[in-house]
Amino acid sequence: MSELTAQDRARRIKVLLFDVDGVLTNGDITIVPSPDGDRSKAVEVKGFSAHDGMGISIARLAGLKVGFVTKRESQVVAIRAKDLKIDHLYQGQSNKREAFDKVLADEGVTADEVAFVGDDIIDLPALRVAGLAIAVANARPQVKAMAHWTTTQVGGQGAGRDAIDFILEAQGVLDSTIEAYLDPSNPAAKKADIGTGKM
């Protein structure tokens, strides 16, 4: 039997999981200390791509479930996940395979129906079992070596959108989903849309 292509794998995807740092952000972690030096009051800053956010709206409208699986615990990620109406949020995950398996159980899907997008070696346990393993353009060599597909854009600059577009294009629904999103009379589009940023 011939090896499945990345497009073949993408056609089966029902759930799309992302690492955060280096995938949905450029990997920078900026910490702003409080004026009084209290570490508990320090503020963490991350930058996210609006293209990825729009892509998540399109993915949801197309029927995909979306999740974040990250090792760090960050209020910034929680806020972004809420704004994007993310279905699954797992922070503090040193073993991402455990979160991956929880999503399988919650969604009633098989590993073949889940895509994982990563950039570093901590993502390998989830990437190794994902039906579609995606590396971002700035991923470490070990991740790129085992990925089924690699994005054109780097993390934080539209890599997430690349992954979404690739999956929906393979499923034959990218263009029709975009048109459905742009239809102002479509209630499903309004329901799938991301938040307005009022946090």
Rank of each mutant, 00 (worst) to 15 (best):
M1D: 06
A10D: 01
R11S: 02
R11N: 02
L17I: 12
F18W: 13
T25Y: 13
T30F: 14
V32H: 13
V32E: 10
P33C: 10
G37L: 10
F48W: 11
S49G: 07
H51C: 06
G53R: 11
S57W: 07
R60P: 00
A62M: 06
A62T: 14
G63D: 08
L64P: 02
V66L: 08
V69K: 01
T70D: 01
K71D: 07
R72G: 05
R72S: 06
R72K: 13
V77Y: 00
A78M: 14
I79N: 14
A81T: 13
A81E: 02
A81M: 05
K82P: 00
K82V: 04
D83G: 09
L84R: 06
I86E: 07
D87K: 01
Q93F: 00
Q93I: 08
S94H: 14
R97Q: 12
R97V: 02
F100E: 00
D101Q: 10
D101T: 14
K102F: 06
E107I: 03
G108W: 02
A111P: 01
D112H: 12
D112Q: 12
V117N: 08
I121R: 14
L127P: 09
G131S: 12
A135L: 07
A135R: 14
A137C: 01
A139V: 11
H148R: 10
W149N: 04
T150L: 00
Q153R: 13
Q157W: 09
A159W: 00
A159D: 00
G160T: 11
G160I: 03
I167K: 15
E169D: 08
Q171L: 06
D183P: 01
S185Q: 10
A188K: 15
A188W: 02
A192E: 01
D193G: 04
T196E: 08
